[in-house]
Design a protein around this nucleic acid. Structure first.
Lengths: 188, 188
DNA sequence: ACCTGAACACCGTTCAAGT
DNA sequence: ACCTGAACACCGTTCAAGT
């Protein structure tokens, strides 16, 4: 029992990331510890450090993994409001699948290393909406704030506690209407 | 040296909260530990538990303290866009004073115990803006998301990394314009 | 090469014992 | 009443020693 005392197969990074994501979905980022992860992988806690630098970079990789799975709307010439809605729904859907990871990523944006895919898609849609280059950064940031804040509020439950409609699907659609109408502020 | 071995005065909750807030502003919520707080107060770590239940409730009290200092716009009949801007500026100003605490509070909304002052002020302004009772909850949540997301992005630096204008004052004003224009979506 | 036990420097919190 | 030392059950991470 020299190599991998308890397991048949050697440890792979992919296995580590997938197991970490599963534990995070089940018990939150704050519930994930290197020691628990090792137990789940049936391995000595210190063995993990042969495959990953630190817990921080582990979380970074898991965030990248989830980010890569985002199905952003393609550049297919569809009407821009429809594309904007699709982008919003893609992010919200991912956040509902992995709420704790999104909460972590939103508080530690350095882990995503500025996901340029999202910004590029958003900029493309806003340009299609007739936003000029001078207003592009402002509009992008306002939309980022709205989307990010909605996801934050839904994830933490802050939006539930405010009363009104029980489920947030309708509220999200309203917020998208709000955003689409708000873009008029950038038409001058 | 029976009572308060190292200090002249006995420990007061207010002193604990104020010192905790100072340490949080200096080193972040994750940098605050009961042990460091005790050192700062020149007291045994375990003495703190005679005055506070737990670290969680300590953070709750500190959040409440900062929340109570929010200078929300009064109901003085000023035009509603002006009042909405004032409400936004009040929150952003507080967040810039205590970024780490706001980040914590936004991820743990249960600590604020649903700050009804803010919702009531917002509802009043939205009603003045002509939003009907059926749309009030939707509009409130959309505005909450935008404001909350902006503060989150500014606090974490996510909004800086996106390029565009270097300072965010102008972007915040743009976002307020965006919000005011977006409320048209709720006029039907 | 890969794994591992012991150890280090931290946590929050409990509890029995002091005055 | 108020304070405190020791202890418990955790952390992430290092490092020398094993095979």
């Amino acid at each position: 029992m020299a190599v991998s005392a308890h397991r048949g197969a050697p440890l792979s990074p992919e296995e580590i990331y997938a197991t970490a994501l599963r534990l995070i979905d089940a018990g939150g980022v704050e519930g994930l510890s290197m020691r628990k992860l090792a137990v789940e992988l049936d391995v000595n806690p210190m063995s993990l450090y042969h495959h990953i630098d630190s817990k921080t970079t582990l979380l970074q990789r898991v965030c990248a993994l989830v980010g890569a799975q985002l199905s952003l709307p393609p550049d297919d010439g569809a009407p821009w409001p429809q594309q904007l809605r699709a982008l919003g729904h893609a992010c919200r859907a991912s956040a509902r699948r992995h709420p704790s990871l999104w909460l972590y990523a939103q508080s530690h944006p350095e882990v995503t290393g500025s996901d340029h895919r999202l910004w590029r898609a958003l900029d493309r849609i806003l340009t299609a909406a007739g936003i000029g280059p001078d207003d592009l950064a402002h509009a992008r940031k306002a939309l980022f704030a709205l989307l990010s804040g909605f996801i934050l509020g839904e994830t933490t439950g802050a939006l539930d506690e405010q009363g009104g409609a029980a489920d947030l699907d309708e509220t999200f659609e309203s917020s998208l209407d709000f955003a689409i109408a708000g873009l008029a502020a950038f038409h001058r």
